[in-house]
Nucleic acid binder design. Sequence first.
DNA 1: CTGAAAGCGCTTACAG
DNA 2: CTGAAAGCGCTTACAG
Lengths: 339, 339
Amino acid sequence: MAQKIKLSTIAESLGLSTATISLALRDSPLVAADTREKIKEQARTLGYIYNRRAASLRTSRSGIIGVVVHDVMNPFYGEILKAIESELDRSRHTFILSNHYDSVEKQRTFIETLLQLGGDGVIMSPAIGTPIEDVKLAEQNGMPAILVARTMDGVDLPTYRGDDSYGISLATNHLIGLGHRTIAMIGGTDQTSTGRDRYQGYVNALRKANIEVDPNLRIPGPRSMQGGYEAAVNFLSLPQKPTAAVCWNDLVAIGLMNGIARAGLIVGQDISVTGYDDLEQAAISMPALTTVSNQQADVGRLAARALLDRLAGSHEPDGIHLIRPEMRIRQSTGICRPR
Amino acid sequence: MAQKIKLSTIAESLGLSTATISLALRDSPLVAADTREKIKEQARTLGYIYNRRAASLRTSRSGIIGVVVHDVMNPFYGEILKAIESELDRSRHTFILSNHYDSVEKQRTFIETLLQLGGDGVIMSPAIGTPIEDVKLAEQNGMPAILVARTMDGVDLPTYRGDDSYGISLATNHLIGLGHRTIAMIGGTDQTSTGRDRYQGYVNALRKANIEVDPNLRIPGPRSMQGGYEAAVNFLSLPQKPTAAVCWNDLVAIGLMNGIARAGLIVGQDISVTGYDDLEQAAISMPALTTVSNQQADVGRLAARALLDRLAGSHEPDGIHLIRPEMRIRQSTGICRPR
DNA sequence: CTGAAAGCGCTTACAG
DNA sequence: CTGAAAGCGCTTACAG
């Protein structure tokens, strides 16, 4: 490794001051155009690498934005991240990613690390049980936070998420319209705002159709494909013999469909199943999954935009921004046939 | 936001020097135990946040490790990342993640950013067409690099990946053992080392069994579930009427199986399909997928270990470390029946 | 249009 | 066991 090239190396080699070099490399009009070009050329040939730590220490802006969600491997978050990534890329921000796996400690460690690195802001989908202080920690140290996908009670931060209650009612109404009356709800947890909202939306849709709500038709818990797959046994042995299942998300629905298929029943004929999220794989699952698009791309894009706007000084209104979900009807749902 | 707390704030409040505070907070035995406790206590009550940029500027170590792969949303990389994450967490390193989507530019931008942030090291699965200089850029600036999943010709870096040629021959031999003679290979690209190796392994296995290799039985390209799904039409209309398909990876295999099912054929009976990677969802797909475990957890863990060892000063041998894949036999393969 | 100098917040020899 | 001082590599008023 050659000797470290810094501003002063370039300055000396050209007989200029570091101030001039610094300005020139950042395209300041204060430096004459030809001097600027000469300096840039020299920086290139010397293989100069800009030291962001030094700059950031001086300016107290780092260009770093943190993103922390439950689990990147879950395609739902993956699709949100992709939208955030493409928005931040455009503005030359670096983004640091972390999973919290719903561990409040892991999430706090991440926020602290981000503060230590001088992060400019953070986008988070808060872990279950996140104390308000952990979010305030960021704000109080000058690092604005934006929430995605999950709401937190008692904090007044800009939040971008789908309208879960409305979305799940779309799915439930679709099944009711096909004649289903005994409809189970599979997966999710009351520990997140999303979980509570989706269950509530399902309950509301049933009530509106004058269908009695049977709490035993709810199988809470599963949130993954594996979880949905395992839930199939429970679902199929419910004494009420449900003819349809509203699932927490697409992963649970796909797992459940595979489990039902393995038991010899045909999804879309014997049993109807709906998902939630409209992941890329929903359209090509077997059978193709009827689901609700949660507009992940919009959620990510809008959240990133909101953060960038805030960093640029504009103060967007706080509060919850609900993204409107849309129904996607495919082959996993069909006319009700009693079992 | 309260006034910024720094070492000197704590020092003044306790009538000590910043040197003592700095040492105490890092548990130096040079500071008396009770002074140390008093200092830590004070740091906590003042809400002190360690400024890593300043420290890193001084020490030229940042605690940052970069990881760049093709696409995090691909569960194959996701599983590798998970292993890297858990290994790095333990050593209190922060890791910065990026997708390159096989864009050499995006990858180079990432490496440059990492250098600017003073990254301690980088783990990469190089983009197709990565020029050797881009990797040398990192090394020459004191940032060691480790390769995962893909090899690069002409660079002598520590590389951790599965033994693709051997792995695919396991799958091919398994099909041959079931009586299949007309076996297609679906997906992958000759542009990566992995793609070439897997095709070669398939060819070798056929030759060894005295089965003529028909290049038209290869459908290159697909690497995603969507790709596999779309390839089903081509596959089913091949004039050679293959009875089995060796797929590039599990995603392609699952997509292909869904496509075959949609055409009314039964995978595991009419057509046998093998995957590659043994993703979590392989075991619960419909039918359960016969595949080859690529040992992603080992690849990630060993690569992270190797980097940490190097940062700690030990110089591991360069070169390729091949991880041995393992066969997982499930329901998507069965005895050959002519179509 | 260019330069001299201070300062961002740490850590690290060096003294005592 | 504790302190005074230099320096990491930038940027930014302030002069000229």
